[in-house]
Design a protein around this nucleic acid. Sequence first.
DNA 1: CAAGCTACGTACCGATCGGTAACATTGTCA
DNA 2: TGACAATGTTACCGATCGGTACGTAGCTTG
Lengths: 206, 206
Amino acid sequence: MSSTIADKPGRSRPAASADDRPRAAERILNSARDLFYRQGIRAVGVDEIVANAGVTKPSLYRSFSSKDELAAAYVRRYEVEFWARFNGAIGEDAADPKAQLLDYLDNLALRSITPDYRGCGISNTAIEYPEPDHPARLAGESHKAKLRARLQQIAVRMGARDPELLGDGLMLLIEGAFASGQIFHGPGPSGNVARAARVLIAAATA
Amino acid sequence: MSSTIADKPGRSRPAASADDRPRAAERILNSARDLFYRQGIRAVGVDEIVANAGVTKPSLYRSFSSKDELAAAYVRRYEVEFWARFNGAIGEDAADPKAQLLDYLDNLALRSITPDYRGCGISNTAIEYPEPDHPARLAGESHKAKLRARLQQIAVRMGARDPELLGDGLMLLIEGAFASGQIFHGPGPSGNVARAARVLIAAATA
DNA sequence: CAAGCTACGTACCGATCGGTAACATTGTCA
DNA sequence: TGACAATGTTACCGATCGGTACGTAGCTTG
């Protein structure tokens, strides 16, 4: 996958040390994931990342060529987690895509009204980095294009008259929940994302 | 309004110079508005702001106590511009709130698919500053609460059966357009925001 | 054992960050 | 003319930024 992360070195197990604690690169990416998601990428310095990971700075730059590349690795990893959750709720061969999508949205609604909710790490990253050639943004754009296509495909399987319109409507609701979920304190508009989607789906498939 | 900005000093016109060029505080806020919106707040240094404004750093700190306060002033100013646009499309006493809201959304759809679209400066700011007591975030949260209430009020006037649900659905679509409009390159999901809203409104008022 | 390699740490770099102190200049008004 | 408000000028501060040169511990293999 990502050539940025050191994979099997010479032969057999290198096993960093006698203990089986994860290798530096993985600890760094774990640390970056938490800090980037919670505070934003620009708000977190590389010193904080390595301190939180229990490693030192050169270890970071041996596995990642720059902070920008680490941010891109963070986005790619976030995408894996996203699809795990999404596909966990909505199987590719779902018998009832509508019910499964609404399951996902119910879950999103619940998460989005928790106090420390921070929305989608990928959307947030794209907002932090408008430069069109930033590696993290490029990874994020590719992910969002996949999600849009996937929602359109689900709309087809739900029998929508205009699948592009329904897919985009669902995409807007989801992105809206990502954003407003981290702006409102108590239960905000994102708490109604599943209900709004239900209305949209019903109207689009009636 | 904002006590951060120097307002009428002694009496009559102070008029900084013989020329009628805007005062330093206003030039700085103009400069910050453009740079913050286009690049994000954390990405822009105060040196760049003052250079772009044609003033010097001490002038900035005479009118704004910190960069964070300047960011808050930027949000408040952005809010004024937002309501000018919104209320320009949707009068408080609109005869046909549905048509006027769809007008606004048509316009939003058009803007959101332009190449350099950067979404809502206030949403972006809230995403950049998750700290709950940051002055710019506080100003942004207050604005979004007002917008939510306004959309709910419009939903009432449209005769929605469940105005909170319709208002929140519209809010999610709008925030979704803000976000995805700056993620997708060509025409993305945000291009369908007005159509999706039309479907939602029709179903909610049928 | 000694070479060689991998994985890591110590210490440091120049640049930039937000912010300030002290003083000079200009225009307005009384 | 003299006080005042507003801005510019210059130089500086400590902190933090992303990034790196270089040394070293420990395992593996001849």
